[in-house]
Design a protein around this nucleic acid. Sequence first.
DNA 1: CGCGATATTGATATAGATCAACTAATGTGG
DNA 2: CCACATTAGTTGATCTATATCAATATCGCG
Lengths: 241, 241
Amino acid sequence: MLTQDFLRHRRREQLSEEELAALDAIMSPPVRIPKRTTIIRAGEPTDRSTFLLRGFMCRFLDAAVGHRQILSLETSGDFVDLHGYPMKRLDHDIATIGDCEVAYAQHDKLTALIERYPRLGRMLWFSTLVDAAMHREWIFRLGRLDAEGRIAHLICETFARLCAVGQVDDDTFEWPLTQQEIGEACSLTSVHVNRTLRTLREAGLVEIARQRVHVLERAKLARMAEFTPDYLYLGNHDRTP
Amino acid sequence: MLTQDFLRHRRREQLSEEELAALDAIMSPPVRIPKRTTIIRAGEPTDRSTFLLRGFMCRFLDAAVGHRQILSLETSGDFVDLHGYPMKRLDHDIATIGDCEVAYAQHDKLTALIERYPRLGRMLWFSTLVDAAMHREWIFRLGRLDAEGRIAHLICETFARLCAVGQVDDDTFEWPLTQQEIGEACSLTSVHVNRTLRTLREAGLVEIARQRVHVLERAKLARMAEFTPDYLYLGNHDRTP
DNA sequence: CGCGATATTGATATAGATCAACTAATGTGG
DNA sequence: CCACATTAGTTGATCTATATCAATATCGCG
């Protein structure tokens, strides 16, 4: 089933077989998108939303001169541009990071689905509210944490979300971000990201190398990042190790 | 009518008389709340949402030691904790800035209202998506702008939103924030806010004094803040001067 | 194997923080 | 309505985290 991970880290309740099947029925066949591809641009009108089956994407805004600000990371099970459904256009771009696999849901079919299954509608609304909660925490991260804290916080969040979709193994997960991209997310230069990662490694907290993150001291990392997962509204039905 | 400004700056379509009346009918009588009062704390379960009739509020998160990060400013016409309706609890605190007047909507009554007027339901969803869009811009502001740009950007946004509810007169609006609070919003110290405001004043762009903001050079201000109002999704039905 | 992308390290510059007075407003009780 | 207390704003001196610039090293792919 395509959508088995559907909003798994964005909901507190289980979906019924019937609901999942109905959802599956409106999705397009899977489509592959290569890494580093911008798939949606701010302002363009949209009539479908993109469900991420596999891989990493990001939402971002570019500043006038050069600098990019990444606004969120999207992982398997995210409806990356669901807000385009009520909003009809987006206010930011979206791009793949590594290679991705997606499926599309036409907006008119979503409307029909929600009418038939109002609970799904509420769940979709809920999932966009979790987005907003993650945005708020992102604001906190940039506004109140130093370089170490920001990177640690981003790793804690990613760890928690990937746990929920079963993509953390042995405290390790795939993370195809370059140091440049980590910097674009945390508002740091790649040079400073590099030095900060070294500090974290030397402190024995995390190791990041070759597209993989290995969390050694999860509790310490969370403490220095002032991270608590409440804002992710994860239920306890998830496959948290 | 209490709710005449209901989401005025959060919607693209007009509400019908009937819809507005139905909305009004479920609201509690107006309640006054004095300035600097925390009205909702993170984690507490909620069964009603707060509609801001008059005044300014803010959402915020406190860091472990001292520093507060303001996450959003709420103005007349905002449903400040509407997300508490689907989420059942909030992930942040909310406080008044100046004196405020609010009305409450019980969640069970909201449910009934939405069933009867599905268009209102969609509008409520939409308004929480505008929140998310403002959060994204807030991330950009902190991540990619310097002190001048951040303050200029916040002023541009506030100006645009207050225009939509008719609270800008002669390029001037009431703004009961202290320099400390501007700093908590823009992640700057009050000392640096003070110096930056002087720079902006000396450049002839804005004057901020005694709880009032007077915008002298709106276009220049917007340019230096890289501000474009698209993300606010304002229609053109609004009372923009 | 070689080339472009990524990562690493060092030296220097700077925006904004911090610390420390001091002044101006605003509010309050007598 | 004044006197005093409290809060907010202003200015200066110094410090620091992170940016910037520059050079080299390493990785991963065709």
